[in-house]
Amino acid sequence: MPLIDLANPTRFLALTQRLLPGLAVATALAFAAGLYLAWFVAPDDYQQGATVKIMFVHVPAAWLGMGIWALMSLSALGTLVWRHPLADVAAKTAAPIGAALTFVCLVTGALWGRPMWGTYWVWDARLTSVLVLFLMYLGVLALWRTVEDPARAGRAAAILTLVGAVNLPIIKFSVDWWNTLHQPASVLRLDGPALHSSIMTPLLVMALAFALLFVTLHVSAMRNEIMRRRVRTLRLMQAGAA
């Protein structure tokens, strides 16, 4: 992440201007390669048939959903410890993208579950943990939407994010425990024996594509947020001058 070194939002804006076209092209290429591999190269699973293709969207979305919370936690540290001006811009703009990808993970999981389990939703440990993660994203978004002053909201959101980061592993552990208590045998294990490379390669390429997509979107959203704050400051100055 180059964000850490860039103390100055203006220099960050200049850098995004240069980086964004390349990032967008790289994302498009990675998606083209990933989709090609997923649809035309990857074999069907002997048990699940072609529905295994859903995994190539579902799993990268899940990885990013979790990874983005980790990124938000790092930014939260940047906000609270170093009071870095870009840190809460990064945290704020990551939240809606993280929520959207977690939502993709949930919906594709449900659409995968219907043919595999015969129902859209089971209170499976994994799905439930992701649902809780989604709810926590919505909580952070609700917090950002509640308060007008970005600095005040940023610090509060940073504390909530860090508390969430401490709690998420505990929630995961609790839900796993609760799940084994209520459903002894799981029908489908995504993390069973190691995935064959014919599945693994498309999965990794798709994960790369999703990661690039996130970086592109995140950098653009950060640029927008910096501009939004500039507009806000200019307006406040204008109101103060008038």
């Binding site: 926590m136 909580g139 609700a142 917090l143 509640t146 308060v147 909201a153 709690n167 609790s174 425990w177």
Partner: peptide, 24 residues
């Protein structure tokens, strides 16, 4: 109190964190 908002914001933020306590 920091955000000067009461009402439903508190349970929305806090309830997900209480899931482990409820489970156990």
């Amino acid at each position: 109190v920091v955000l000067r908002r009461g009402g439903l914001l508190l349970p929305v933020l806090v309830l997900p964190l209480t899931i482990p306590v409820l489970i156990f």
